[in-house]
Design a protein around this nucleic acid. Structure first.
Lengths: 252, 252
DNA sequence: GAGTGGTCTAGACCACCCT
DNA sequence: GGGTGGTCTAGACCACTCC
């Protein structure tokens, strides 16, 4: 055993170990996509308990720096984040393809449910059953969004069929339903349970969320939904013509 | 000891304990702002190890449900979140007061630094020294934003003096500097070290961030900065006139 | 001094992966 | 079977708060 390592950085031991590992990644000693030494090896090298190393590794997973696969090892996570431009007059998938981004969609389920998420209820407080389309959206093969879209149940079947291939708003546009105003609430939140599975992230992982209420040219059709993205996979870009903002009221 | 509790909910023990505590809070058994039983008491009641209870309590802190104070106890966190409206023609502090919100500012430091945050460098890649104003903004006495604002160093002293009282953009407006375009990047991230201290939150806590680049009527003055808010304290609201968005290119 | 949360340890078991 | 990450335990020490 080495034992005599002197890595006092943070106030606590696991913080010191954590930052030392982070430093090695930054220095290129541990390579992106490759496995780092096992917890047992690091425990021996640093001269600390194995559980302390595991604590440090667990925290680095929450920071988006590492991913661990039980039985295989702990790996340095690839760092690639995409920008979602808002307030530009272009369709999302259309623009993505133009920029050389391959957007693919993985349909998870189409169900009939009532909206229960309190955040979405502020958009649509009707107690009616909705058609709920859940999907994962990939950019260049990397999962970036977990989407749950709610539309009214009397949607024509020919439109519903397209939901498995593209985004719901694209499917609507393809069938002559124009899109008008969109109201967004952007916030952050710990990862939901289905998102944890979809992105292979630990519980508590910081997510960027976009709750949307999309109105259309047909007054009987409006779309509400919730997009959840890992913080290290997606960011939003907004340009406001007049540089003034308002600080709004408290939420319900 | 009770011991014979049967609380198998999650796949692991600490998840079961965690959800049981969450349930008791939802049921009103543990009251907002009040202390919950100590880890030792819970350990005895549930018949699990003390460290397992501590693990559950630690996770609930990351979820914004509990706050712990060493030596005092663990408390149910107050749930109050504010909405920040974007794209409305109103000054932030002005609008806040109109709605009965008391916005107060706690000046942390005014320093001269270069911009190092890679995210902000995308707004301003000049290598020049900047005036950096760091502050905490409170809404109704509750801290909601940790702000770091960068302006050019040749700012008149009379404006700099006002930075301690109000937001930087307000100080500029008070001295006849009009605000024009603003470019925002909104993302999520684990809490930075200074934000952890400012908000008394654990490391890894999900934060909503707003990186801004505010141009003014004076071409020599522009403001860039970074606002960091706990996910359970602030959300953003955006309304886009035309319901089309673009999916942008990859970040650098 | 008693109680609290936070940290650290040594040791153990499990499920999983790879050979 | 040997290595991996994930979980759980019993026990200990520390800094802190409150009485």
């Amino acid at each position: 055993m080495a034992g005599n390592e002197v890595l006092l950085n943070g106030s606590s031991l696991h913080e010191g170990v954590r930052e030392e590992i982070r430093r090695r990644i930054a220095a290129g000693l541990y390579i992106e996509g490759e496995a780092i030494p096992s917890a047992a090896q690091l425990s021996e090298e640093f001269g600390v308990s194995a559980i302390t190393v595991k604590r440090a590794l667990r925290d680095l997973q929450s920071f988006g720096v590492l991913t661990a696969v039980a039985g295989k090892g702990t790996f340095v996570k690839q760092q690639r984040r995409f920008l979602r431009e808002l307030s530009v007059g272009m369709s999302s998938t259309e623009d993505a393809r133009r920029r050389g981004l391959k957007l693919t969609v993985d349909l998870l389920s189409i169900t009939r449910e009532k909206i229960v998420d309190p955040a979405l209820l502020s958009f649509d407080h009707s107690d009616a059953l909705k058609l709920c389309v859940r999907k994962i959206v990939y950019a260049d093969g990397m999962p970036v969004m977990y989407d749950a879209t709610y539309v009214s149940t009397d949607m024509p079947d020919e439109i519903v069929e397209e939901f498995s291939n593209c985004l719901v708003t694209d499917a609507l546009q393809n069938h002559g339903v124009g899109l008008t105003d969109i109201h967004l609430i952007i916030d952050a939140a710990p990862a939901s349970v289905p998102a944890q599975q979809a992105f292979s992230i630990p519980s508590g992982y910081p997510m960027l969320r976009r709750l949307y209420h999309q109105k259309t040219t047909r007054p009987d059709i409006s779309v509400v939904g919730l997009v959840e993205s890992p913080f290290d996979r997606l960011a939003c870009s907004v340009t406001l013509p007049v540089g003034k903002q308002a600080f709004g009221e408290r939420e319900a």
